[in-house]
Design a protein around this nucleic acid. Structure first.
Lengths: 403, 403
DNA sequence: TCACTTTGTGCAGCGCCGAAACAAATCCGG
DNA sequence: CCGGATTTGTTTCGGCGCTGCACAAAGTGA
């Protein structure tokens, strides 16, 4: 016997694109959905009805709060408040975070952040997934998928984490397999997908943050150590042929710079990270505090020698600008988003950074590339959720029926 | 009255992909077409019938030359020998080339190459298009489009050629508009599209040459002066948000290197071009001959001091490898193709180049990225034709009916 | 109150494809 | 030389997903 599938003779092929529009906030009403999808009102209506039947959205027939426009007001489309969610996990240098994330990138529930570091990836991921299972049980929400963000490149299609890892895991850890095993062990029968944290942050920013509307979005972020990059092309993450694209940490930005473990000198990685800022400003790092925190404190003015800090900022901004210019010349993005310390550097000297990028990238035109800070709080976590939502956005009916 | 369109109730949506398979030589028979398209034999049959009706292919019911396999032999699909063509024009530093190119990238007819240099883009493009019109008249073939390759970045969507131009044209020449005007003036009522020569060469290599089957193809080539790059992603040219992607000439590959007009030192552009080879080998350039020819003569052993040449080659290969490694870290391609002088450098020291790229790119894995020479003769010209064929590949029925 | 504008819905129809049955062409084994 | 086995091409039927159209519904403005 065939499963009891919603019978509708319209609106299956356009279902995914429609859900994506609602998901990214670009379809507040049915009328907008019609124009954005480029279909007839009949089709858009059938699509909305089916998405509602699937429990993903709600349709509010009441007028859209006196829009002021002429004609019959369009029905509002809202993300179902008690709809399904996905499990999102982010592992970082100091622990992990777990959350349930609904459509629209909205964090529905969060487990207390864990701040312990464990050298065994199976244990830390297992703990996180267990916390997620408890969250699911407590909220009673249906779970459609799971995503994991790790601070390392993830090789495709094997799903192994590669050096340099910014957690104390063994190189080549098969995070994809581990994540899947943990999910089945915890009784969460959903597929799990893994990705690099900066990549996923870029995806989240593109869908719900400062990257909305960009066609070619470049995202660069420095965390505690090392630089990560990501590229979103036409709404899709570009991870290269083996998942190793945008490993931009070793572009040379200062020929006479610091020695890097890669063998070269003046890599972006060692020239623009928190330790470089501390060192350039003449501050001895306090091993008890994270370098990122100390660097941010410096930028916040928490230092007696303001001139030394300003000089250090100028130097790092120049190096960063050089690296960004190289990426602009290679990728020609139409927007750049910075995270981590790079975001703070942008805030400290926006004009200097923009002019360096403009000068160093060809044609001068590139000076018009907008450089913006991240706008989402836990963008890697939301990005992990995006990874989990992707199959639903691609084919909502099948995924919903499969559960 | 509706136009007399071929009436078929099957095979319209799959028509484009099917033609692309035939075009790239991946569908020699109807059976292969069926499996490659992932459709039923019924659909593939209808598609083949319609492509035949459109005059694009011929179906040969005779057996495929005793294939040896069991079962009924599949019908062969061939590109129609007298089918439509496109007009391809390539402008380079020394003149222009014109050809008619059929499906499959086959050059059907060529006008005598022009070797005069003209500072007026309208005149040189106009001459080329006139030569193309004569070719069309002489052969009597139907023309479906026109493509132009220029040795400069082409800004999208304005279609202007940008500095550095490697012909003596004014910066910002509106080549797209000029090309279109020339086409209408010559009585060729087809749309014209323009692109950078290296980009188009990469497209041609991906479809018909050494790049076949690559998902993420990186192409780097040096011509007479300056380095060009191109990236083909999933069969589509990636030109960035404004057509300026892969302007890789100003990646820094030698901190202590030559001064470049961009203001930096040791750019890939000035470190790996023919003049750099001559200079490093201690040869005074002969202004009467092209630097590329002299450099190639050097590589061919046409020089008394072989040791100096070998040292120069080693140095340029190291610089090139450094630049390629940076691109590998940013783009993670699964194949690299080199053209121009870079191709000759690869031939001269393949192992050295590959090991430099492997050492300088992260993970060591990248050492497995195949680096190959170009395999097509006039790849920019064929690439210009690809540009013109693209609308046909996207929707054959509409383009064929529109004429 | 009556146009006018815009939006939602039901119905007919059609393009495009899959499933299945049938026909054709070749190889293989006797 | 002759029947299976195997693979391929063709025909027919039906369904899915959409468009186009007509009509109803819900607001604004004179």
């Amino acid at each position: 016997m065939t499963p009891t599938r919603i019978k509708l003779d319209r609106g299956r092929g356009a279902l995914g694109p429609a859900l994506e529009l609602v998901h990214t906030g670009r379809a507040p009403t049915r009328a907008v959905l019609t124009t954005e999808l480029g279909v007839t009102r009949a089709t858009a209506g059938a699509v909305a009805t089916e998405l509602q039947a699937l429990g993903l959205i709600t349709v509010d027939p009441r007028p859209h709060a006196a829009s002021g426009a002429q004609g019959r007001p369009s029905h509002r489309l809202d993300i179902a408040p008690d709809g399904p969610v996905v499990l999102a996990v982010q592992v970082h240098a100091d622990g992990y975070r777990v959350a349930l994330v609904g459509l629209g990138g909205r964090i529905v529930a969060t487990a207390p952040a864990c701040m312990t570091v464990d050298a065994d990836p199976a244990r830390i991921i297992g703990d996180a997934v267990t916390a997620g299972a408890e969250l699911l049980h407590a909220t009673g929400r249906r779970c459609l998928g799971a995503g994991l963000a790790v601070p390392s490149a993830v090789a495709e299609p094997e799903g192994t984490a590669l050096n340099p890892l910014h957690v104390a895991w063994p190189a080549g850890a098969r995070v994809h397999d581990i994540f899947r095993d943990c999910l089945t062990e915890a009784g969460i029968g959903v597929p799990g997908r893994c990705g690099n944290d900066v990549n996923l942050a870029a995806l989240a920013e593109h869908r719900h943050g400062a990257g909305q509307g960009a066609q070619h979005l470049l995202c660069v972020a420095t965390g505690h150590r090392g630089v990560g990059g990501a590229l979103v092309l036409d709404g899709r993450l570009h991870t290269g042929s083996a998942g190793l694209a945008l490993e931009v940490g070793h572009l040379i930005v200062d020929p006479a710079g610091r020695a890097c473990h890669c063998g070269a000198r003046g890599c972006l990685d060692v020239e623009t990270d928190p330790l470089a800022l501390l060192e350039t400003a003449g501050v001895t790092p306090d091993p008890a505090r994270s370098p990122l925190d100390q660097a941010r404190a410096l930028l916040a003015g928490d230092h007696p020698e303001a001139a030394a800090v300003a000089d250090a900022v100028a130097q790092l901004v120049d190096r960063l600008g050089q690296g960004l210019a190289a990426m602009v010349n290679v990728l020609n993005p139409d927007r750049i988003i910075l995270g981590g310390l790079h975001q703070s550097l942008l805030a400290a000297a926006p004009d200097r950074l923009r002019s360096v990028v403009a000068d160093r990238s060809l044609w001068g035109r590139s000076g018009s590339v907008p450089i913006l800070p991240c706008s989402l709080g836990h963008n890697s976590l939301v990005g992990a959720a995006e990874l989990a939502w992707q199959p639903v956005l691609d084919d909502p009916a099948t995924v919903l029926a499969g559960g």
